[in-house]
Simulated scan of single mutants.
Amino acid sequence: MLFEKLKPEVVKILGKNDTSITDRLHEVCQLLKDTITYYDWVGFYFKNGDKEELKLRTYVGEETSHEIIPFGAGICGQVAVSNKNFVVPDVQAQDNYIACSISVKSEIVIPLFKDGENIGQIDIDSNSRDPFTEEDERFLEFVNQEVATIL
C-alpha cells in the first residue's frame, strides 16, 4: 500500500535535525502532493500564539490568501474547535466552507496534538470529488504524530 511505503519517508524527512522545522514540514507537504495523485494542496496550520486563530506555516499547491483562519471559520477553523478529523467529500455541500480555489472539490483536515493539546492541523484539498478514505485519515494521523515529535 502506498501509505505504508510513505511512512518511512515521512520519518526520514522529519528526522533531518540539520534542517529547520518549517523546511521539514514543507518537504513533507511536497512529498505528499507529489506522491498521492488526489492531494492537490497540502499545508500545515498552527495555533497563532494565544489568539483564537490558525496561521499557515507552510504549504505546497496553488497560492492561497488564507494565511489566517479564525477558530470556527471554514473546515480548518471548525477542526480547531472540535478537535476531530473532518472529511468533506463535496465542499459545495458545506455551509461553513472557505473557498481557496474554484477547482477544489473535497477537503480533509486532521488535527495535530502535542501533549494532548490541539496545536495545529494538516489540511489537504483535492480537485477530485470524494477521494478520501479511512486509510487517508489513519495515514495523516500518523504524519501528525510524527510531526508532534519534532515540535
Rank of each mutant, 00 (worst) to 15 (best):
I69E: 00
N85V: 15
P111W: 02
V81T: 12
A93L: 11
T22G: 02
D23Q: 14
S82G: 05
L151F: 14
Y45E: 01
L54A: 07
N118D: 10
Y45K: 01
Y38K: 02
L25F: 11
T64Q: 10
N127E: 12
E53M: 09
E117F: 13
F44I: 12
T37H: 13
K114I: 13
C100G: 15
L32V: 04
E52C: 05
G74Y: 04
N144H: 03
C76K: 01
I122C: 02
K5T: 13
C76P: 08
A93I: 04
L32K: 08
T133N: 09
N96E: 07
G49S: 04
D18I: 03
L25I: 08
A99S: 13
E141R: 14
S65I: 09
P111L: 06
K16H: 09
L56F: 07
V60E: 13
G15V: 04
S65D: 13
L54N: 04
G116P: 08
S101P: 06
R24T: 05
Q78G: 13
T58V: 15
C100I: 07
N48H: 12
G61R: 03
I75Q: 01
I21Y: 00
G77K: 02
D18K: 12
Y45W: 07
Y45S: 00
I69Y: 02
G43S: 11
L32C: 03
D23G: 06
D130G: 06
G120M: 02
D23S: 15
H66A: 10
E27K: 13
V91D: 02
Y38G: 04
V10H: 02
T58N: 09
T35D: 11
F113S: 01
S103I: 11
A73S: 12
F46I: 10
T133F: 08
L56C: 07
I68A: 01
L56V: 06
T35K: 15
D123V: 03
V91P: 02
T133W: 07
C29L: 05
I119E: 00
D123W: 02
K114T: 03
T58I: 10
E9N: 10
I21S: 08
F44A: 00
N85H: 09
N17M: 12
I68F: 14
K33R: 15
L32H: 02
S126L: 04
G49W: 06
P131A: 06
I98Q: 09
F142T: 06
S65Q: 13
D50E: 12
T22A: 14
P111Y: 03
S126G: 07
K16W: 04
E62M: 12
K55H: 07
V88C: 08
Y39W: 08
F142M: 09
